[in-house]
């Protein structure tokens, strides 16, 4: 049992390592960007862990449903290991060696169950591009031991056929929506419903976690702030009563004034000359 569990975990680690390589390949890293922001999301039910990065304990007794970070990690390769709380790094229950962290990215490492219920670590690159004024970004990640799902907002499917370990995302109007997760193509509610408060200028990342079989499906949420944009402008007047700067009539008046001064002066001068 112990051995088979270890094998399972090791296999999971190999998959995660491949996924990391994928992240590195797909993330263009500008030469100047040295560090990445890395968050860790715990989505394995009933399994608190210690998290080691390069052999150094980074998180103590990290609990399911918690989100840690962001850590600022320099671009490079990292060994990440999860142990049962208090156990040495040598007896890790889940590990990824030589995980590549690209520079200048925002990454979430999700420790979760795969579709078959095996623990694994999946790195996700977070879209931290700016959202338009008035908008919020919703990202949903399927990280649960469950089949394909649809995500509904106000009863209408917004993301369809999402499978583990994929994500779906959209920029939507900021505000509160009632959301739930159903088995793909059905009305069978798997998670929720819950009120999602999508704050303007943020990304709300919702992870579906747990296991359908064990009836402990749940969600973990991570929020990234500071993605807001300013409005395009502030139009606040069309009357013209407060206009500064001079108008066309001003030039006409000033021009006429100058002409009259000149004309009058010349006439005075010629008149005087004439009288002499």
């Amino acid at each position: 049992m112990q051995l088979s569990y270890f094998r399972r975990v090791a296999a999971g680690g190999a998959v995660a390592a491949l996924a990391f390589a994928g992240v590195a390949a797909f993330t263009a890293s500008p030469a100047y960007a040295a560090t990445s922001k890395v968050s860790v999301v715990h989505g394995i039910p009933d399994t608190p862990v210690d998290v080691y990065v390069n052999g150094k304990k980074t998180l103590n007794n990290f609990k399911p449903g918690d989100v840690a970070g962001p850590l600022n990690l320099a671009e490079g390769e990292y060994d990440i290991a999860l142990t049962k709380p208090g156990e040495p790094v040598g007896s890790a229950i889940l590990k990824v060696d030589n995980a590549e962290v690209p520079g200048g990215a925002n990454i979430s490492l999700a420790a979760h169950l795969d579709a078959a219920g095996k623990p694994k670590i999946t790195p996700f690159v977070n879209d931290v591009s700016k959202v338009d004024a008035g908008k919020a970004r919703l990202i949903v990640r399927h990280t649960a031991a469950a089949p394909a799902v649809d995500v509904r907002a106000g009863g209408t499917p917004v993301f369809k056929g999402l499978t583990n370990p994929k994500e779906a995302k959209a920029d939507v109007d900021a505000g509160t929506v009632k959301a739930d997760v159903v088995l793909a193509g059905t009305d069978t509610v798997a998670i929720g419903p819950a009120d999602l408060n999508l704050k303007e200028g943020t990304a709300t990342i919702v992870y579906a976690i747990g296991s359908a079989e064990d009836k402990n499906l749940d969600v973990v949420a991570q929020t990234i702030t500071g993605l807001h944009s300013a409005p395009g402008g502030v139009p606040s007047g069309d009357g013209g009563q407060a206009g500064t700067g001079v108008q066309t009539w001003w030039y006409a008046l000033a021009g006429a004034g100058v002409l009259m001064l000149l004309g009058g002066g010349v006439r005075m001068a010629t008149a005087r000359t004439g009288r002499k």
């Binding site: 500064t244 001079v246 004034g257 001064l261 008149a271």
Partner: peptide
């Protein structure tokens, strides 16, 4: 003829004065 010239001068001064006042009031804050 002199009167006309003076009147033109006076009108010119008045026009420029108004123009100057307007320009001064129209300065940005």
């Amino acid at each position: 003829r002199n009167c006309g010239a003076l009147a033109a001068l006076a009108a010119g001064v008045a026009a420029l004065t108004v123009a100057t006042l307007v320009a001064c009031n129209s300065q940005p804050a």
